[in-house]
C-alpha cells in the first residue's frame, strides 16, 4: 500500500514536471507556428531582394545586422572590460558604486534611454537620426547584462585556480588570461548573446534615435536613418493589406531565426573556448 502511494506521488511529481515543461515550450511553438502560418505566402526570394518600399525586407535585414554588429563592437568590449574590472581589480567600495550604477541602468525603461538619446545625440549634438545614436542607445540598454554576466562568470571560477596562478608568481594579467578567462568564456559568450538578442528585439529606442527608411542602409554613422526588422512588424501589422501582414510575419520569423543563429554562435564560441576545460574531452 505504501509502495503504491510512493509510486503515485512519483508519477504526480513527474506529471507536474512534464506539464511545466509543456507550459514553457508551448508558447514558443505556438509563436513559431503562427508566424509561419502568417508569413508563408510571403516567404520567397523577394523578401531578400526588395526593400520595404516594395514589400521586401532587404533594407530591414541589413539594418538589423548592422545594428547588431555595432552593439557587438561597442557594448561587447566595454561590458566585458567592465565585468573584468569589477571581478578582479576594483576595490570593494568602488565596485559597490559601479554595481549600483549598472543595476540602475538596467532598470531604466528602454523608451527613456531612447528619448534621452534623441534629446542628447540627435538634437543637442546634431547627429539627427543616425546609426551611431542607435548603437549607443542600444548599447546602454544591454551593457548591464554583459557586465553582470562577465563579473559573475569570473567570480564562479574555482578559487583554487586563482590560488595556483598567484602562488606561482604570475602577473595579474597573465592570471586572468591563462587561468581565469578560459573557463569563464562560455558564460561570457552567453551574456553577449543574450545582450544581442535583447537588442535585436528592441523597437522603442530605435524610433527615437535612428528613425526608419525604406532605403538600404549606408555605413554613414550620422544623419542617415536606417530600416530594421522590428519596425516592420510594428508598422505592417497596422496596414490594411494581407501582403503587408504576411511581410510583418516574415520579419518576425527572421528575428527568431537571427536569435537562433546567435544562440548557435554563442555555443560555438563557448565550445571552442572550453577546449582545455574539464567538461570536454581533448
Amino acid at each position: 500500500m505504501r509502495d503504491l502511494l510512493r509510486r503515485g506521488r512519483d508519477m504526480l511529481f513527474w506529471g507536474l514536471c512534464l506539464l511545466a515543461l509543456a507550459l514553457v515550450i508551448a508558447p514558443s511553438l505556438a509563436i513559431i507556428a503562427s508566424l509561419l502560418q502568417q508569413s508563408w505566402p510571403a516567404l520567397n526570394i523577394n523578401l531578400f531582394t526588395n526593400t520595404t518600399a516594395t514589400n521586401g525586407l532587404q533594407n530591414a535585414i541589413l539594418g538589423s545586422l548592422l545594428l547588431m554588429a555595432g552593439i557587438l563592437v561597442v557594448a561587447g568590449p566595454i561590458g566585458i572590460a567592465g565585468g573584468i574590472y569589477l571581478a578582479e581589480f576594483a576595490p570593494p567600495t568602488r565596485a559597490g558604486i559601479l554595481r549600483l550604477g549598472y543595476e540602475t541602468l538596467a532598470g531604466i525603461p528602454s523608451i527613456i534611454i531612447g528619448f534621452v538619446g534623441y534629446i542628447v545625440l540627435a538634437q543637442e549634438l546634431h547627429w539627427g537620426f543616425s546609426l551611431l545614436a542607435a548603437i549607443l542607445a542600444l548599447s546602454a540598454i544591454v551593457l548591464p547584462y554583459v557586465v553582470k554576466t562577465t563579473e559573475v562568470a569570473l567570480l564562479q571560477v574555482p578559487a583554487t585556480l586563482r590560488d595556483a596562478a598567484v602562488a606561482l608568481g604570475l602577473p595579474r594579467i597573465t592570471t586572468l588570461r591563462r587561468a581565469l578567462l578560459p573557463p569563464a568564456i562560455p558564460a561570457i559568450a552567453s551574456g553577449v548573446v543574450v545582450a544581442l538578442a535583447i537588442a535585436v528585439g528592441e523597437t522603442a529606442p530605435l524610433l527615437y534615435t535612428v528613425g526608419f527608411t525604406s532605403q538600404d542602409p549606408t555605413l554613414s554613422l550620422f544623419q542617415h536613418p536606417i530600416g530594421y526588422l522590428t519596425y516592420v512588424v510594428y508598422l505592417n501589422a497596422t496596414l490594411p493589406t494581407k501582403l503587408e501582414h504576411e511581410v510583418a510575419g516574415a520579419a518576425g520569423l527572421l528575428i527568431l531565426v537571427m536569435l537562433l543563429a546567435l544562440i548557435g554562435l554563442g555555443r560555438l564560441v563557448a565550445r571552442r573556448a572550453a577546449r582545455y576545460a574539464a567538461q570536454l574531452p581533448s
Binding site: P158, T160, L161, D163, A164, A165, V166, A167, L168, G169, L170, P171, R178, A179, P182, P183, A274, Y276, A277, A278
Partner: peptide, 22 residues
C-alpha cells in the same frame, strides 16, 4: 618583490589545480 618571493616559495595545494591550458 612579491612575485619573485612566490617564485622562490612554490606551493602545491590540497587538490590538483592545473590551468585550463595544454
Amino acid at each position: 618583490d612579491v612575485r619573485e618571493l612566490r617564485r622562490r616559495v612554490g606551493m602545491l595545494f590540497q587538490r590538483p589545480n592545473p590551468f585550463p591550458q595544454s
